[in-house]
Simulated scan of single mutants.
Amino acid sequence: MDRSTQVRAMASEARMSVLRLLAEPEKHFASQWSADPVEFGVCMTLIAEALGVAQPTASRHLEILKQAGFIIVRKHQKWSYCKRDEAAIRDYLAWLQQELAAT
């Protein structure tokens, strides 16, 4: 994984907010009717609404998170759904901890 892409992804408060929201999809997106937000992921439209931004802006943030490997995007019919990739996030955090502890 390209660590510079991951660092860039984490450098935005909006993208950090997306990851926080997706950490508890049942709490933040319980009203999603098209698919189970925990099992399938959260619709990009609802993420844009939760951030209070236009859909193109949310899509740009989500694309960066996807490129960094922090989210998985699945398409179903005309919608795209996002879910955190917990293993990738854990790997990044372990790498960051190691880098910051290096002497």
Rank of each mutant, 00 (worst) to 15 (best):
I64G: 15
G41V: 08
W79I: 00
R20I: 07
L93T: 07
T103S: 12
R84E: 03
V42E: 05
I64K: 15
R20L: 09
L21W: 00
E49G: 00
Q77M: 14
Q67N: 14
V42N: 06
D36R: 10
E24T: 04
V7C: 06
S80A: 11
L65R: 11
K83Y: 07
E39Y: 12
F40E: 03
A94I: 08
L100V: 14
R8H: 05
I89V: 08
K78Y: 11
K66I: 11
K78S: 13
E49W: 00
R74W: 07
R8G: 01
T45W: 03
F40R: 10
R8A: 08
S4Y: 01
H28S: 09
Q55N: 14
E99N: 14
Q98C: 06
R15A: 09
A101Q: 13
A101T: 06
Q67I: 01
V38A: 15
Q6H: 04
L19Q: 05
A30R: 15
E13K: 14
R90G: 05
Y81M: 12
I64P: 08
T57Q: 09
S34Q: 13
A35D: 03
F40W: 08
G41M: 05
R60C: 10
D2F: 01
L19H: 04
D91E: 12
T103Q: 11
I47Y: 00
T5Q: 06
V18M: 02
L21D: 03
W95I: 06
Q77H: 15
L22S: 02
A35Y: 02
D2W: 03
A94T: 09
H28Y: 11
Y92D: 08
E26A: 13
C43E: 14
A58L: 09
R90S: 11
W79H: 07
A58N: 04
S31C: 07
L21Q: 01
A48E: 01
K83G: 09
Q67V: 02
V42K: 07
D2K: 08
R60T: 14
T57C: 04
A48V: 01
K66D: 15
I71C: 06
L100Y: 11
L46A: 06
E49F: 00
